[in-house]
């Protein structure tokens, strides 16, 4: 822990390169879709008695989980 640690450590710089990835752009999908209310502000079709407004927003949770999992797996440091 001496003063020379202040500069960018080589391993940190290497991990920086791995932090950037085109996969990250996918994260915008589950951010934008749940905010487009005209897309899901409707009564039909109902699913198990749930109006579309409700079950579609539950489905967006799965969209969010799917996307973050995919991005995590694709950008994970290997080795």
């Amino acid at each position: 822990m001496d003063e020379s640690d202040v500069g960018p450590a080589p391993e940190a710089v290497a991990s920086r390169a791995k932090d950037r990835s085109p996969w990250n752009w996918l994260l915008f999908v589950p951010i934008v879709v749940p905010l487009l209310t005209p897309l899901f502000n409707r009564e039909t079709p109902r699913l198990f008695g749930f109006p579309a407004f409700y079950w579609l927003q539950f489905a967006f949770i799965l969209l969010g989980v799917g996307t973050t999992t995919l991005v995590y797996q694709m950008t994970k440091k290997r080795g």
């Binding site: 994260l27 915008f28 589950p30 951010i31 749940p34 927003q57 967006f60 949770i61 973050t68 991005v71």
Partner: peptide, 13 residues
């Protein structure tokens, strides 16, 4: 619900 869906991809990085 949408609030707690969009939060995680937003703060992921």
């Amino acid at each position: 619900v949408p609030y707690t869906v969009i939060i995680y991809p937003m703060v992921f990085l």
